[in-house]
């Protein structure tokens, strides 16, 4: 059973997750079907900057985050940004969207100049997230858990971060049991996606270098 405090925690995180989104004027531009290669590149980089800002605003609303040491806050955000953004993008691709939208977004990424060897694992990850059919509470909690990973580089007080992450893992575990009673391994599958994210993170630096050269 989820306790009253856990419900409050979930509500705060879900509200923050829903409140902070990419602005509509940018999403409208993303859905335009006519664009040059340069326009596409500039827009995708604008989206990336926006995604980081959205991520920071979400994170500021995670209970306890702003009470962490300031430099540890920076280290957590820096260390998790790439993973959190891939997870957020995958969640966007999992949503029910009007016909054709997914195809337009996919096409932009395929035409971006990013090499196929990086696009394939990225879209495989999006597919694996889609297949999980997470509810919004699970999505928001998983994002928060990704950000509050204690072993990121340069984090000084790992225990303080663990103290924030553990209650979220606990409520996510309970939620998985309640939402997916026929799938006792569901929570483990979710955590498995975090491992997949680490692999994407590892490729990301290489992907950017290759993209820039293209």
């Amino acid at each position: 059973e989820i306790t009253k405090e856990q419900r409050t925690l979930m509500r705060l995180i879900v509200d923050a997750h829903n409140r902070h989104q990419i602005p509509q004027d940018i999403t409208k531009k993303l859905l335009q079907e006519q664009y040059s290669a340069e326009e596409n590149f500039l827009l995708l980089t604008e989206v990336a900057t926006n995604q980081v800002q959205v991520l920071v605003e979400f994170t500021k609303n995670i209970p306890g985050f702003l009470s962490l040491d300031h430099e540890d806050q920076i280290a957590l955000l820096k260390g998790s940004a790439v993973e959190a953004m891939f997870l957020r993008s995958a969640q966007v691709f999992s949503r029910k969207m009007p016909n054709g939208y997914i195809e337009v977004l996919e096409e932009r990424i395929r035409k971006s100049g990013i090499s196929e060897e990086f696009i394939t694992p990225m879209f495989n990850f999006y597919k694996s997230i889609n297949e999980l059919h997470m509810v919004e509470e699970e999505q928001a909690l998983l994002t928060a858990i990704t950000i509050l990973t204690p072993d990121r580089p340069y984090v000084k007080d790992q225990q303080a971060v663990e103290r924030l992450q553990e209650p979220m893992l606990d409520v996510l575990r309970k939620l998985c049991i309640l939402q997916h009673p026929q799938e006792p391994q569901y929570f483990a599958r979710l955590l498995g996606r975090l491992t997949e994210l680490r692999t994407l993170n590892h490729y990301h630096a290489e992907m950017l270098t290759s993209w820039r050269m293209n």
Binding site: R19, T49, V56, E57, K60, I74, K78, A205
Partner: peptide, 21 residues
């Protein structure tokens, strides 16, 4: 390294300031 500095700068600015929805 250039990416990392750029990312950190965006994070620091966003942490200090307010980002309008």
């Amino acid at each position: 390294p250039g990416n990392s500095i750029g990312l950190e700068a965006i994070i620091r600015k966003a942490l200090m300031g307010k980002y309008d929805d």
